[in-house]
Design a protein around this nucleic acid. Structure first.
Length: 230
DNA sequence: AAGATTGTCAACCGCATCCGT
DNA sequence: TACGGATGCGGTTGACAATCT
């Protein structure tokens, strides 16, 4: 396609354009971005198509906020490799170089590129808070598990010891699966998912607390630890 | 309530690199 | 080996949203 004859569309992509691009990749695979316009009628140049696919439409992309674990990886890899975003992105499946670059610039890049001692102290405090929270959460999980086991023992007694552990239960040292409906409202998987999501939520709140101590203090204090559903 | 400031993120641009001819 | 097109990368911009004053 002769670029000087075509007036390429620019700016945000529409849902229709996205659909055309998705269909094109389904049919022809990734790459050959120059043929997209020819074959689909899209008025987007090769670069724009590639970027849209890589940063937004790829099905293996991870949506949502960067997790504390990912943040730690970003910090470590940036310390090692500097601004080699695509290299860093390879260690974070589902995240794009653009996303990581944006995240870094928003959260860590300071004027002049060097953090003041006050800022680095803030970062340290934040990491310590996280560590503390993780420890507390593990403790809570442990205590919760103990409670679950007590419950199961009671149920076992009530059921006249007629229930047996499956082989898998024995291997995992877990509650007999037949008791799940009685012990958990849903499945254990749902409980774990909820806990993880809550962790992300709490992490976000810490960020807020660091940034806006006055406005979020009350909110954070009034929240309680997430508890499994019974 | 409204304007100013700051944060976020999608998208663009220029340059570098790769690869086929 | 040189050349040109395709692709990849990192820096930057601009629009919009959220928050502050």
């Amino acid at each position: 396609m002769e670029e000087h004859l075509v007036s390429w569309r620019k700016g945000p992509w529409t849902a229709e354009e996205d659909q055309l691009l998705i269909e094109h990749v389904k049919l022809h695979g990734e790459g050959r971005w120059n043929s997209v316009a020819k074959l689909t009628g899209l008025k987007r140049n090769a670069k724009s198509c590639r970027l849209r696919w890589v940063n937004y439409l790829r099905p293996d992309l991870k949506r949502g906020r960067i997790t504390p674990h990912e943040e730690r990886i970003i910090l470590e890899l940036h310390a090692r490799w500097g601004n080699r975003w695509s290299t860093i992105a390879r260690s974070l499946p589902g995240r794009t170089d653009n996303e990581i670059k944006n995240y870094w610039r928003t959260h860590f890049k300071k004027k002049g590129g060097i953090m003041s001692s006050e800022e680095s102290a803030k970062l340290k405090t934040r990491l310590l808070k996280r560590q503390k929270f993780q420890q507390e959460q593990q403790k809570q999980l442990f205590l919760q598990k103990n409670e679950d086991m007590k419950r199961v023992l009671l149920l076992l007694e009530e059921s006249d010891n007629k229930v047996t552990w499956s082989q898998q239960d024995m291997v995992n040292n877990e509650i007999p699966s037949v008791f799940y409906p009685l012990v958990f409202n849903n499945s254990q998987h749902v409980v774990e998912t909820t806990m993880n999501e809550d962790f992300t939520l709490w992490d976000g709140l810490w960020n807020l607390e660091d940034l806006y101590p006055a406005t979020t203090k009350g909110c954070v204090q009034n929240l309680t630890m997430p508890t499994p559903i019974f």
